[in-house]
């Protein structure tokens, strides 16, 4: 099995593989934030901090205990979710931009604290040994990414997910309908940070060296851009946003030094022309089903309606 997978990978250009894995990690992170910001409507500017907690937890589990990667990622996710819930419990009472600045502030605090801890090796960071896994890392990353897509899709259509959507729509109305807003918010935060932690763990093992400064404000903004660009609250949107933005720096490479200039301008123009994101207002399932011919095209539906008149 291991050899077969290794063989499969050796057929892929390592540069392309690197980009594919970056996209996979991006998807896990974006989906986590999508639960918090997209589904529940709580703006977080500190997602990278939870990624950081996850990355260091996961790295330490491998370094100190040599834990197998699957168990490692689960424990990492659980630890991060616990941290997320502990942080979320007090600050989720805040609303809107006050919450946003609090998450940002918390992210800065995590960064500074990690820069001062011996266990994270301060600014010198940690070298992460290869993951204890029979399956090559790229497959682990994409396996996790696909599991994350399934998990979040499941949540979206569950009773829990509907409650979160109700909170996003109107907190007071949701409360009036008997939804325990505070509890659901913390749970959604825990779920989102769980994925952030897992994403951080994958990042740590794939990149092989981590440093507290890697997980700054700009990283949080990167992840936020993914979900807004893809379409807030949309799972395919988060996946596509993660794909586009993880690959964009590489695709724009031919522009040499103008690259980041174009990247900035692209963000603005994409928002201007698709303010609700690439997948905003698009029903992805219908789109796929239509493409597969399992559901009539919108045009035909409308035509039939005309005929029916």
């Amino acid at each position: 099995m291991t050899e077969f997978l290794q063989g499969l990978l050796s057929n892929i250009n390592p540069y392309i593989l690197q980009i594919i894995v970056n996209i996979g990690i991006g998807i896990v992170l974006a989906l986590g934030l999508n639960v918090i910001t997209g589904l529940t409507g709580q703006l977080s500017l500190g997602h990278a901090a939870f990624m950081s907690v996850g990355a260091f937890t996961s790295a330490l589990l491998t370094i100190k205990l040599g834990m197998p990667i699957t168990l490692n990622l689960l424990v990492t996710g659980a630890v991060t979710a616990l941290v997320g819930a502990l942080i979320g419990y007090p600050i989720l009472r805040l609303t809107g931009d006050y919450l946003a600045i609090c998450t940002l502030g918390f992210a800065e605090i995590v960064k500074v604290v990690f820069l001062n801890l011996d266990i994270t090796n301060r600014a010198l960071g940690l070298s992460v040994p290869p993951a204890n896994s029979a399956i090559p890392m790229p497959f682990v990353v994409w396996g996790v990414a696909i599991l994350a897509i399934i998990l979040v899709s499941f949540v979206y259509n569950s009773r829990f997910g509907r409650a979160l959507k109700a909170i996003r729509g109107d907190e007071i109305a949701a409360e009036a309908m008997g939804i325990n807003v505070a509890r659901y918010k913390v749970q959604s935060f825990a779920l989102g940070t769980f994925l952030a932690g897992v994403g951080g763990g994958l990042y740590a093992h794939f990149i092989s060296y981590i440093n507290p400064s890697d997980f700054g404000f700009l990283k949080s903004i990167d992840i936020l851009s993914m979900i807004v660009l893809g379409g807030l609250g949309s799972i395919p949107g988060a996946v596509i946003g993660a794909g586009v933005l993880s690959a964009a720096p590489e695709f724009l490479r031919f522009m040499a030094n103008y690259r980041m200039l174009v990247y900035g301008a692209l963000l603005v123009f994409m928002m201007l022309f698709r303010p609700n994101g690439l997948m905003g207002g698009v029903n992805f399932t219908d789109m796929v089903l239509r493409a597969l011919g399992r559901k009539p095209h919108l045009k035909t539906v409308l035509q039939n309606r005309e005929v029916g008149k």
């Binding site: 910001t37 703006l43 903004i221 936020l224 851009s225 807004v228 660009l229 807030l232 900035g264 301008a265 692209l266 963000l267 603005v268 928002m271 201007l272 303010p275 609700n276 994101g277």
Partner: peptide, 10 residues
């Protein structure tokens, strides 16, 4: 949030 991302782009 769209305006926020646009601001970040700027």
């Amino acid at each position: 949030l769209s305006a926020l991302i646009s601001a970040i782009g700027v």
